[in-house]
Nucleic acid binder design. Structure first.
Length: 213
DNA sequence: CCATTGATCGTCT
DNA sequence: GACGATCAATGGT
């Protein structure tokens, strides 16, 4: 089966995931999210990647074929989702950081009762996973199979002029690498906590700077 | 608006 | 035994 745009280098895959739609089915209903913020991990030698220290049971999916979902557990309470990309045997993935709910709004609101506005429903990787109803059970799911409970749809491409790029959020190492991509001025993008625990100097902030137009 | 902190557990050392 | 690819609540400016 074809895996459009998922087998190449991780940076290109990440950028092109913006505007695409992740649709998750469950007995409760279906929620779909249009991706507005992503981060690339892995590739050549990325110390921030879970796969950096080699193959373990957790990172097994990252080493597998592209187009599958890598779901991991963080901070004792949250789940986060990645799209595995690159060739089989190359461990790279794109973290899904934020999106706009485009279908199943009522169900997403039900799952995210603390959200004060709709753009907040999937603003942040753990929130996005929660809005879609995804947890460890979705780890390894094939996103390109018609019968999968989680699928990656074509969506609408985002033109270059609307894409901004900057450092990844919350990574302890390689925090200066601009491998985070987001849709400019989109309210669902998690603009807070830029740089995470470590302070990031202003010089390394967005490569394209047009936050306020 | 911004900064700080507690919650809570799988994974790896 | 330490540490997170985080979130939400709290309190300050």
């Amino acid at each position: 089966m074809a895996r459009p745009g998922l087998a190449g280098p991780v940076l290109g895959v990440a950028r092109d995931l913006l505007g695409r739609v992740v649709e998750a089915w469950s007995p409760e209903g279906t929620v779909a999210v249009r991706l507005t913020e992503v981060e690339a991990y892995g590739g050549a030698a990325d110390p921030a990647s879970h796969a950096f220290r080699g193959r373990t049971s957790r990172t097994e999916v990252m080493f597998g074929p592209p187009g599958h979902l890598y779901v991991y557990f963080v901070f004792g309470m949250h789940w986060c989702c990645n799209v595995v990309c690159g060739a089989d045997g190359v461990a790279s993935a794109v973290l899904l950081r934020a999106g706009a709910v485009v279908s199943g709004l009522d169900l997403a609101r039900h799952r995210r009762t603390t959200a004060r506005s709709d753009p907040e429903l999937a603003r942040g990787p753990a929130r996005l996973a929660a809005a879609l109803g995804l947890d460890g059970r979705a780890n390894g799911v094939d996103l390109c199979a018609a019968a999968s409970p989680v699928r990656l749809l074509a969506g609408t491409p985002v033109p270059d002029r609307a894409v901004e790029q900057g450092p990844r959020v919350g990574v302890a190492s390689a925090g200066d690498v601009p491998w985070r991509f987001w849709v400019a001025a989109d309210p669902s993008v998690s603009t807070y906590r830029l740089g995470g625990r470590r302070r990031v100097s202003r010089a390394t902030l967005p490569v394209t700077t047009s936050r306020r137009g």
